[in-house]
């Protein structure tokens, strides 16, 4: 074998390796890494939005509403559930679990938040929904009509759910809408 040949074949190999490395890294970065970064958690009760909307005739605001003090009750309290589910209404496994594990021992359901912000962040639903008239689905996934509670992806590094709104998103929108970006508008 000549030196040239050797060079050629190794050159080819080099490029194959390059592509392999490139593709492998893309695979790791786009497919494996997100799998590793996020843990998947399931809600304690597999809540069926669809059945509550269609069969029970509930609207979103029946469970997700503003309190008199202006704060937003994102996750319903057990008392809301008990209004109908003091006794099982149907025969699903999840409902049986609701009654036996939460309603009867009067224990709050530990719903996992899809959009928990850090302690130092103050987010005003009132300002965005009532004043700026934004839609819930501008920030939150649309669960209406879904028959299963979507699993929650929690970032293993930060501890926050996947898809929480980042500060730059807030800031950009505040700039666009000509709203103050002073620190204490959103932090405490």
């Amino acid at each position: 074998m000549t030196g040239e040949n050797k060079q050629q074949s190794s050159g080819l190999l080099g490029w194959v390796l390059f592509v392999l490395g490139f593709a492998g890294a893309l695979f790791v970065g786009w497919i494996v890494f997100p799998q590793l970064l996020f843990s998947t958690k399931y809600q304690p009760i597999n809540y069926n939005h669809s059945i509550h909307q269609e069969e029970a005739g509930l609207s979103c605001e029946d469970c997700h509403f503003f309190l008199e003090d202006g704060t937003f009750a994102g996750k319903p309290k057990l008392s809301t559930c008990v209004e109908c589910h003091s006794e099982p209404q149907g025969e699903t496994e999840d409902e049986a679990k609701l009654v036996s594990e939460y309603v009867e021992p009067e224990k709050q359901i530990p719903w996992i938040s899809y959009s928990r912000q850090p302690d130092n962040v103050f987010f005003s639903h009132a300002a965005h929904v009532r004043m700026a008239e934004m839609e819930c689905t501008d920030c939150h996934q649309d669960v209406s009509g879904q028959t299963k509670a979507p699993p929650v992806k929690i970032n293993r590094l930060t501890g926050y759910p996947n898809g929480i709104i980042k500060m730059y998103v807030c800031e950009n929108c505040h700039v666009r809408e000509n709203v103050s970006n002073a620190c204490d508008v959103c932090h405490h």
């Binding site: 190794s10 893309l26 590094l157």
Partner: peptide, 30 residues
């Protein structure tokens, strides 16, 4: 040389994936 190419490919691919950027961002949040 081939090894360097593998690494270069890997680096290139990584840079074009969300991994480094997401890690930097999440580390800051962490």
């Amino acid at each position: 040389r081939a090894f360097v190419k593998l690494i270069a490919g890997g680096v290139g691919g990584t840079l074009l994936s969300p991994l480094p950027w997401k890690m930097a961002d999440d580390t800051a949040i962490w």
